[in-house]
């Protein structure tokens, strides 16, 4: 993944929204993953795998793409 155009320069101060948008999205996806398999099987299990895989996939992406 290339740097989005909106990425702030290293020296600029990020807003709380910029700092927390990815962690918040991952927290929401994890929660969806944790709850969805409780409410049913089949599709809901698959949804839960996707939700819980999100933090793992993003970490692997960061370890590769955000190495400095």
């Amino acid at each position: 993944m290339s740097q989005p155009h909106t990425a702030a320069k290293p020296s600029t101060i990020r807003t709380p929204w910029q700092i927390f948008k990815v962690p918040a999205a991952l927290a929401a996806l994890s929660l969806l993953g944790l709850v969805s398999a409780l409410t049913g099987d089949g599709l809901r299990d698959a949804l839960s795998w996707a939700g819980l895989a999100a933090p793992v996939v993003v970490t692997l992406w960061a370890l590769k793409a955000r190495r400095r």
Binding site: A7, A8, P10, S11, T12, I13, R14, P16, I19, F20, K21, V22, P23, V58, T59, W61, A62, L63, A65, R66, R67, R68
Partner: peptide, 20 residues
């Protein structure tokens, strides 16, 4: 940890890992 993540990341992009 989440609270002090904010000042730490003030000038960093999400996911930055400085290995060098």
């Amino acid at each position: 940890g989440v609270v002090i993540y904010a000042p730490f990341m003030r000038k960093l992009d999400f996911g930055t890992v400085r290995v060098g």
